[in-house]
């Protein structure tokens, strides 16, 4: 009895710690006062301001565009890596392959961002491309570090996967490619969707790498938000937070649904 009390208390305090800041943020987004911390009354004023703020809306559209595109590319390449690592025996310089596909997971974003920026500058000096940095360079950088996250999900899924189904299909006359497209990929589809969602969120949320590789006309949402809250508080950002938190949490739930599906 005593130990179950401790258990409930620990879990309750843990969840409180995790959710309290988010609730505070949402609560203050309804504050009418321009001074964020002084409560004046309930109001949807800042939501209204938010939807009329062209800078934020534009940044939001750019971010969604980059996130959707880079998640798609990262998913295609990540699935290829996951598949290669589990199913294909002969990979030249395999440990180098593993190094390339797993290091972006642990490398500090700052170092990754700096390396991408210096790479684009050097490339521009040599072949004159990309002549200026912007959405394209952010997209390339985001694909590069999202690949690893997708690869790890797919690799885990394929490791659990019952190979007999693939072999049975082969015995029934399917060739290699057909097995992949008709059997393997459809079965791991939930994991592929989960990988895409994770890559999408990571790209949407990235500030550091985007700050390094951005250029004129490519202010993503985190860059704009950071410039607003770096030195102070912003009631518009509070309203944005509430909306974004809600949207991202729904994406997160959907991710769990996709990633859990195969486990039971």
């Amino acid at each position: 009895m005593k130990s179950s009390l401790i258990k409930s208390t620990v879990i309750f305090l843990g969840l409180f710690f995790l959710y309290f800041p988010i609730l505070v943020l949402i609560f203050y987004s309804f504050n009418e006062n321009k001074r964020v911390m002084v409560w004046k009354g309930f109001s949807l004023k800042w939501y209204n301001e938010l939807f009329n703020n062209e800078q934020i809306i534009e940044a939001f559209i750019i971010s969604i565009k980059i996130a959707a595109l880079s998640a798609t590319f990262a998913t295609i390449l990540g699935v290829m890596i996951g598949y290669s690592l589990v199913r294909i025996r002969k990979i030249p310089f395999k440990s180098f392959y593993i190094f390339l596909s797993s290091t972006p997971l642990v490398l500090p974003e700052l170092i990754l961002g700096l390396s991408m920026l210096l790479f684009f500058i050097s490339l521009n000096n040599i072949i004159g491309f990309p002549s200026s940095r912007g959405q394209l360079t952010i997209f390339i950088s985001h694909v590069t570090f999202c690949i690893a996250f997708v690869a790890i999900i797919i690799q885990a899924r394929l490791t659990d996967f019952n190979k007999n189904i693939e072999e049975a299909a082969m015995d029934l006359g399917y060739n290699y490619t057909k097995v992949l497209y008709k059997i393997t990929l459809p079965i791991i589809l939930p994991s592929i969707i989960a990988g895409w969602l994770l890559a999408f969120t990571i790209s949407l949320d990235d500030l550091v790498v985007a700050s390094f590789t951005t250029g004129p006309g490519a202010n993503t949402l985190p860059i704009v938000v950071f410039s607003k809250v770096r030195l102070g508080l912003s009631p518009e950002v509070n309203a944005l937070s509430a909306i974004l938190m809600f949207a991202l949490i729904i994406i997160g739930l959907f991710y769990f649904y996709c990633n859990k599906k195969f486990k039971h």
Binding site: G14, L15, L18, Y19, F20, P21, I22, V24, L25, Y28, V36, M37, T201, L204, D205, L207, P222, V225, F226, V229, L233, V237, N238, L240, S241, L244, M245, L248, I249, I251, G252, L253, Y255, F256
Partner: peptide, 22 residues
């Protein structure tokens, strides 16, 4: 488990900003 991980899905920058408010 889902409850614990869900905050991780919400924006990193905004979760830091929340502490600035607190």
């Amino acid at each position: 488990l889902v409850l614990v991980v869900i905050p991780f899905w919400s924006s990193f920058l905004l979760r830091v900003y929340a502490w600035k408010i607190i």
